[in-house]
Design a protein around this nucleic acid. Structure first.
Length: 452
RNA sequence: GUGGCUGUAGCUCAAUUGGUUAGAGCACCAGACUGUGGCUCUGGGGGUUGCGGGUUCAAUUCCCGUCAGUCACCCCA
């Protein structure tokens, strides 16, 4: 069926698909800029070592890697963070802190494709470097949530689940979980919703936890408020600083006006080797899709990857799951593919050359202009047929050539104010010079061409 | 990489217990008509039923393989 399609896990973007992607990108960039982040980019192809150095060779199985013609081991980038770390590290001393950068890279991985998980996707990366304060953590999550808002989603559609590695470590320590048992405990919490509780208990028991400890670990996901934390662990001296810190984080989120979106969820784990502090994920409220977005604080990573000790935090938000969610909520514009601003219509009283002159003048002014691209039809096709084509192409205005000197500018259904308005007659001669042409069209009710 | 499910036109689907030239709607193209507008009408193109093999007088239908999609596992930086 799809034998001639793209490679497995890759996508063709037809105009309507690209329009949707562009809508997502627009929201990403608009919100990131609103929070004063600046955009950067790096190479889509990197040395393989950039990814194997810290993660080990086993991740090669997930990489889209190969040997180039120069014999170099290279890989398409599976994530942006190593590139980001390298770039920041190279100018670490010169960059004013905190660094607030974002990027929209296309990322690649060699895995079997599943729903919401392809071999290629675009992912917004937003990172802050050089700021240890919880204010930065709150700011970061707020960006992610504001993007949801920007796209038309609300707290009933999307939930932000937040946790903190430092907090969870303290709580597990209070329960008596040892350093060696930490990994198992994390794994169980991560899978608590997808795995039968009996299996979870069994795993914890195998790791050497006592029955009472197991029940306390299993109960951690029930904690959903700061009050719960205080009640269960407020008296534990070693947990107090982490609870207080987490409390400040939540308070900042409240002050930023996003508390309605946020759920405390200690079962949010994310990459073990990566995060050191706050972690969060955004999910659709129904819980039907994969995570829309995930991120957190990774204070050690720049030291590991770039050799500079700087606190850092960031998140990634992919276009695939987000696109599915927007589609499910019908938040994509139905005719997002831009039609021409003008469709120039010939009549029996005009020469085809006049149509071309009119279109050329519109294009000089900066408008998108189209007409029947067939000389025979330009000479003889009825204007009604051309108008039909104009509507179908998504045109906004008609320019009907009454004859070789006079044109009628008429709104189509997409024009501001709809199709109720009458057309205005304009002299073709007045359109030849762009500045005068724009003034004449403005008088006829046509807005200036879009800047982008 | 492992296992389950699925595979008919661009899309959504149909085709009696295996039985003639595999159909429909939408979309697309052409024309007519609407004396300037998404309507309506007529006609047309488009499928070696994912591909390959097997069973059978006969396969879209049954069996095997393969490719692709999908779900779960693994993994999620």
């Amino acid at each position: 069926m799809a034998q001639k399609g793209p490679l497995p896990g890759f996508r063709d973007f037809y105009p309507e698909d690209l329009a949707r992607r562009a809508a997502i990108f627009r929201a990403w960039r608009a919100v990131a800029r609103r929070y004063a982040f600046v955009e950067y980019d790096g190479p889509p192809l990197e040395p393989l070592e950039l990814y194997t150095a810290k993660s080990g060779d086993e991740i090669v199985g997930q990489l889209y890697n190969f040997e180039d013609k120069g014999g170099r081991a290279v890989s398409l980038r599976p994530e942006m963070t190593p590139t980001f770390a390298r770039m920041v590290a190279a100018r670490a001393n010169a960059l004013p802190k905190p660094v607030r950068w974002f990027s929209v890279p296309q990322l690649f991985r060699y895995e079997r494709a599943q729903r919401g998980r392809l071999r290629e996707h675009f992912q917004l990366n937003v990172d802050i470097v050089g700021e240890p304060s919880e204010l930065a953590d709150a700011e970061l999550l707020c960006v992610a949530i504001d993007i949801m808002r920007e796209l038309g989603l609300g707290p009933n559609d999307v939930r932000a689940r937040v946790s903190d590695r430092r907090l969870l470590n303290a709580l597990l320590g209070a329960i008596g979980v040892t350093e060696a048992q930490l990994g198992t405990a994390y794994g169980v919490l991560d899978k608590i919703e997808r795995q039968p509780h009996d299996v979870s208990r069994e795993k914890l028991a195998e790791a050497g936890l006592a029955p009472a400890q197991i029940e306390r670990v299993m109960a951690l996901p029930d904690i959903s408020t700061l009050d719960d934390l205080e009640r269960d662990f407020g008296q534990v001296e070693t947990a107090k600083p982490a609870i207080a810190q987490f409390g400040r984080y939540l308070a900042h989120l409240h002050a930023l006006g996003v508390e309605a979106w946020v759920d405390v969820d200690l079962a949010i784990v994310r990459g073990l080797a990566y995060y050191t502090g706050t972690v969060f994920e955004l999910f659709d409220a129904k819980g039907e899709l994969r995570a829309i977005c995930g991120g957190g604080r990774y204070d050690n990573l720049l030291g590991q990857l770039g050799g500079v000790e700087l606190p850092a935090l960031g998140f990634g938000m992919g276009d695939v799951v987000l696109g599915e969610l927007l589609k499910a909520h019908r938040l994509f514009d139905d005719d997002a593919v831009d039609g021409p601003d003008f469709w120039v219509v010939s009549t029996e009283h005009c020469a085809p050359a006049s149509v071309l002159r009119a279109a050329a003048s519109l294009r000089r002014m900066g408008y998108a202009a189209e007409y029947v691209l067939n000389e025979e039809k330009l000479r003889s096709q009825k204007s009604s047929a051309q108008i039909k084509a104009a509507e179908r192409a998504g045109a906004v205005w008609l320019m009907v050539l009454r004859d070789d000197t006079r044109v009628e500018v008429r709104p189509l259904s997409r024009a501001p104010g709809g199709e109720a308005r009458d057309g205005a007659e304009v002299l073709l001669h007045d359109l030849m010079e762009p500045e005068r042409g724009l003034a004449v069209l403005a008088e006829a009710g046509v807005p200036a061409p879009r800047e982008d």
